[in-house]
Simulated assay, not measured.
Amino acid sequence: MGEKAKLIFWQALTPVHPGTGQDSSSVVDLPVAREVATGFPIIPASSLKGVLRDGREDERANRVFGSLESAAELTLTDARVLFLPVRAYAGTFAFLTSPLVLERLRRDQKALGLSPLQAKIPTPGKTEALLGAGPTIVHGGQVILEDIDLEARVGAVSGLAEELGRLVFGNEAGYFQERFALVHDDVFAYFCEMGMEIIARVKLNPDSKTVVKGGLWYEEAIPAETVLSCFAIGSEGFEELERPYLQIGGQASVGRGLLRRLGGGA
């Protein structure tokens, strides 16, 4: 049986902390994992695969996910950020993406023999937000984000918004399309750096119920609503991905790290 590829989309239902396992020695003690070249946050493939395997050591798990004796029949790539939620003055929040993000997705689709994005991917100016039809995130002709105000160009990427909505969200496309904004690569990179959720954590003395010395630290997390994409490549085992949700990363016991699989994909 020959190998095939499948495009998978995940959405964060709660903040997700795919950690690096190292103290950063900076203001944020425990950062999220990031791509070296872009600085964009990712969920490493090893984290996804570990959760999917979930400690199983049966014959099927060894065949699909690999073992010390044999290579895996199913390969996963890192999950990259596709749409980043950023708080907006109107419409509550916007789903941001950039030409670089979408061009890389299209490149990878082609490389793996999948049908690539068909809509044109224009390049917005650094002060522009290209929107679909009927957006809810426009106020006074602008998309007003947390730190940046962008000129709204309504309808400039209607076809792209519709195609992405169908591909990723399926029947929920409307909720996405009204918040979709294509922004300059530099603007997207800025929010990937500054737009993560910062969570303060404390360790308490079990007797006094006070914070122990050195027991305060800060964790970075990919915010809820973020949409990520990854590819699965192999000859079998794709049914292992047919889960409605995964719990991944740190702090699962306090409800973090919950991902749902979206209905789109290819």
Rank of each mutant, 00 (worst) to 15 (best):
G255D: 07
F83R: 04
L167H: 03
R53N: 13
R153S: 10
G263C: 10
G250S: 15
R34L: 07
P99T: 07
P15E: 02
K49R: 12
V51M: 06
G215C: 03
F95E: 01
Y89C: 01
K120F: 14
K6A: 12
Q247H: 06
K126L: 08
G255N: 09
I198K: 15
R261S: 07
F188T: 12
T20L: 11
A156W: 00
E73Y: 04
F83P: 03
L74Q: 04
R87Y: 05
S46P: 06
M1W: 00
T136G: 03
R260G: 08
A232V: 12
P122Y: 11
D58T: 11
L182E: 13
Y190H: 15
D23Y: 05
G215K: 04
G165Y: 03
A37Y: 11
K120S: 14
D58I: 09
R107W: 04
D185T: 14
G141F: 05
A88F: 01
D186Q: 13
S70L: 05
G170N: 13
V81K: 03
A71M: 09
H139E: 09
G113K: 08
F40M: 11
D29M: 02
E163I: 04
D108M: 08
L145Q: 03
G255E: 05
L68P: 00
Q118V: 11
E220F: 04
I248K: 01
G66C: 07
Y175F: 13
S70T: 11
L84K: 02
G39W: 12
L74T: 06
E219I: 02
P99W: 05
R261E: 06
A189C: 14
A111Q: 07
P99R: 04
D108N: 10
A79P: 02
L102V: 07
A173M: 10
L182Q: 10
F231Q: 04
S208N: 08
L117H: 09
F188Y: 15
L100Y: 15
L167W: 10
D78H: 08
A156L: 05
G195N: 09
A119N: 04
H17A: 01
G174W: 07
E3Q: 06
V202T: 07
E103N: 15
E103A: 10
F188E: 11
D185I: 12
G265W: 11
F9D: 03
F169C: 03
E242D: 15
A72N: 02
A37R: 14
E239P: 02
Y190F: 14
L216Y: 01
G237T: 10
E57D: 15
L150Q: 06
A129E: 01
P244T: 12
L160E: 06
V183S: 15
D108G: 00
P99Y: 08
R34T: 12
K4E: 11
F188N: 12
R243T: 15
E57S: 15
F176N: 03
V187T: 13
P85S: 11
A71E: 14
A173C: 00
F191S: 05
S158L: 00
Y175W: 13
R201A: 01
E197L: 14
E162H: 02
C192T: 11
K120E: 15
G125V: 06
P122A: 10
G263S: 14
V86G: 02
C192E: 06
D23S: 08
V143Y: 03
I137F: 03
L204V: 02
L246C: 07
L228Q: 05
Q142T: 02
